[in-house]
Amino acid sequence: MSEPMTALGGAVYDGVVTVREAPATGMVLLRADLSDSAVQEAVRAVIGLSVPGQRGTAFAGSTGLLWLSPDEMIILGSHAESRARVAALDDALGSAHALVCDVSDARAVFTLEGRGLREILAKLAPVDMAPDRFAPGEVRRTRLAQVAAAFWLRDEASAQVICFRSVAQYVFDLLSDAADPANELRHFPR
């Protein structure tokens, strides 16, 4: 078994914020009616977290749930365990109508660290990044310039961004360009 390779091998850019490609992250896609109690129970039993509400997230350590739509959720965790997690979820869901897939390798993950991250994202995503409108704990499924992406804040100085693996370089370049200190914009209170 080879070590999993991320799209950019952990690329880093230091600017207004530090843009860093995260190590391989486990991601399981769940498509199911998230309001179905059988689905909620199965998720709780396997993951140990409750299904979050609209645009919500739930985290315990490196395990997390990202609400993507009323019938779509991402389960974050260790890359090595994602296949086992798919099997466990499939088991727990039993006859419930659901689709569980390992999508860990379909995506690239970036972290943004630094106080300017709200402005960086507001240059690329049509999202209200004001602190009173987008707080840690929420996730936005949106776009960065021309490609699909989702992001959430861990705290005021760190954010996670996910995009499709094939456009990892494009997204890294976008984020780096937006984080160029020459283009710093202070718009939100820090």
Partner: peptide, 8 residues
């Protein structure tokens, strides 16, 4: 349910 796994 459908899912696009092209990039996986």
């Amino acid at each position: 349910w459908t899912a696009n796994l092209t990039e996986q």
